[in-house]
């Protein structure tokens, strides 16, 4: 745990925000991949085993998944926007002069798109479960 804290603290001090974004990109990517495999399995059951397909869909409607859904939204929005930044900058190296600005823009875009999405989904879940 102490080692991890050192990595985070020193990584931030030495390498700055870009390093944290790089780390977050990997973690969010792993999270999405985990859900993707589960999700594709569940959806494929609509052909192979409709009863199991229904069980999978009903599982997504439980409080645990309602919370997980918010995490997935955060991962997906961040990974998409940060990934777009990476792809655009690396395919257009002349834009690298604007690198700092691009990092800030992608964080702002993540918040502007992600927070309302998460709030809408959280409100829907609260309305559904707290009644």
């Amino acid at each position: 745990m102490e080692g991890l804290m050192t990595i985070v603290k020193e990584g931030w001090r030495y390498k700055g925000a870009g390093n944290v974004m790089w780390m977050a990109h990997r973690i969010s990517g792993l999270g999405i991949m985990f859900f993707l495999i589960l999700h594709v399995f569940g959806m494929s059951m609509s052909f192979f085993n409709p009863a199991l397909h229904e069980i999978m869909l009903e599982t997504y409607k439980t409080p645990l998944f309602a919370v997980g859904e918010l995490g997935l939204a955060a991962c997906l929005v961040f990974h998409s926007i940060n990934g777009t930044r990476i792809a655009l900058l690396e395919l257009r190296p002349e834009w690298w002069l604007q690198q700092k600005k691009a990092t800030q823009y992608s964080l702002v875009a993540t918040v502007v798109i992600g927070v309302p999405m998460i709030l809408i989904m959280a409100m829907a879940s609260i309305n559904h479960f707290v009644k």
């Binding site: 495999i37 594709v40 494929s44 609509s46 052909f47 192979f48 409709p50 397909h53």
Partner: peptide, 15 residues
């Protein structure tokens, strides 16, 4: 999982 998903998308959902 990809093969299962692809087959399901080719054949459609079972009612």
């Amino acid at each position: 999982v990809t093969i299962l998903g692809t087959l399901a998308l080719i054949f459609g959902a079972t009612a």
